[in-house]
Design a protein around this nucleic acid. Structure first.
Lengths: 213, 213
DNA sequence: TAGATTGTTAATCGATTAACAATC
DNA sequence: TAGATTGTTAATCGATTAACAATC
């Protein structure tokens, strides 16, 4: 038994955090028609050191070529695959309040392959309403909908008080990941992935930094 | 000349990131009527180790008492002061689109002392419109408004293509911090603080983690 | 006073950077 | 081939954890 018990070496959280940024800048470069780039150059653009960039990339494969650098298109596609952008994934959203509606209306993520399949709320005044092509469903239908429609990501945009309950239902119905906008740290089993958007925390950090100056 | 050139030791970014979370959980404890808590107990609730919590807090002062622990109310207030929540601060928001409107409507941050003073857009259809008590102003008035109204934080919720330009204007007018929702890394002088809410990056990280499972 | 728990120094761990051999 | 730049190992740096003396 070698030490290769796991399929792959665990990727540090710090590396995962940087991946979307690499992807975003590569997209820009691609749109500018750039063909090749060195770790030195890309690092400067993104704001990381060249060795760090190479280290990060090499967690996922050898995307470069000695003496040449990286092919922008190839690297962009490789990162997209690493992040699971290639295969489209379906999401549900619960909580059609301010942020919920903003997400439903913008649907910025659809061009990245994340489709909003259905939206839910408990408010009778909202249920039945159509927002940007989606009819608000009653949250009592949530579990069945997830189970029957190949949904793997749930978006939570409800008030803090009901976020955990919504998460529980999503998990029971078989969701794999939760994109959480409620100012709550959800309790979830280890096989469920959670990404928090705690907006107010961002503002408090900003305030601290401004004050510190 | 001692090594105490700086007023205080630089606080690591990792510590700053955790502060709002401490604050949030202390608020909960306060609401539950909790009077005292040990670093051990608070650490468990927040999800950090007890020594780490003590280390973090001691960047800002000695808030505890040996043999006793921390007084919840006192610690809560101390952290609020550290983060600059005590003195109220005024903000402007530019970009009354989906997320912009959501922020204007919710104004969750007002109970933390962050007041939205004015909102701006370039769209003639939006200018003059009233949203949750605030009339949308023309962005040409932005600079003068900031300069004349003791504004120290600017919120950017415009499309990526105009984010840098808006930031430039804010900075010229004397803003201290930028809360940026545009998927762009703003170029700013070192005395300007920036906090990014790159929502799509969060979704991509989530996708990666789901795929990795 | 004895027990508890902080504040703080020292040890460990992990992540970043430097260096360079491999190789296109 | 010579020059360039990757992939990767080793060195450094910073952040977390352990340990314990200080003290309430």
């Amino acid at each position: 038994m070698t030490k290769e018990t796991d399929e792959s070496i665990m990727v540090p959280a710090a590396v995962i955090k940087r991946l979307p940024k690499y992807h975003r800048y590569l997209e820009e470069l691609l749109n500018e028609g750039r063909e090749k780039i060195s770790s030195q150059q890309l690092g400067e653009i993104v704001g990381v050191s060249a060795p760090q960039l190479r280290q990060d990339l090499n967690y996922f494969g050898n995307f470069g070529q000695q003496g040449y650098g990286y092919n922008v298109k190839k690297l962009y596609n490789s990162l997209a695959e690493v992040m699971g952008i290639q295969q489209k994934s379906n999401m549900v959203l619960v909580g059609v309040g301010n942020i919920g509606q903003a997400l439903v209306n913008s649907r910025d993520f659809e061009k990245r392959g994340f489709y909003l399949s259905a939206i839910f709320d408990t408010n009778p005044k909202l249920i039945g309403l159509e927002i940007n092509g989606l009819v608000v469903k009653d949250v009592v239908e949530l579990k069945d909908y997830i189970a029957e429609n190949d949904i793997n990501i749930g978006v939570i945009t409800v008030p803090a008080s009901s976020a955990q309950e919504v998460a529980n239902q999503m998990i029971k119905a078989g969701i794999k990941g939760i994109w959480n906008f409620s100012p709550v740290d959800l309790k979830t089993p280890p096989n469920i992935q959670v990404e928090n958007e705690h907006l107010t925390e961002g503002l408090l950090r900003l305030s601290f930094k401004v004050k510190e100056e």
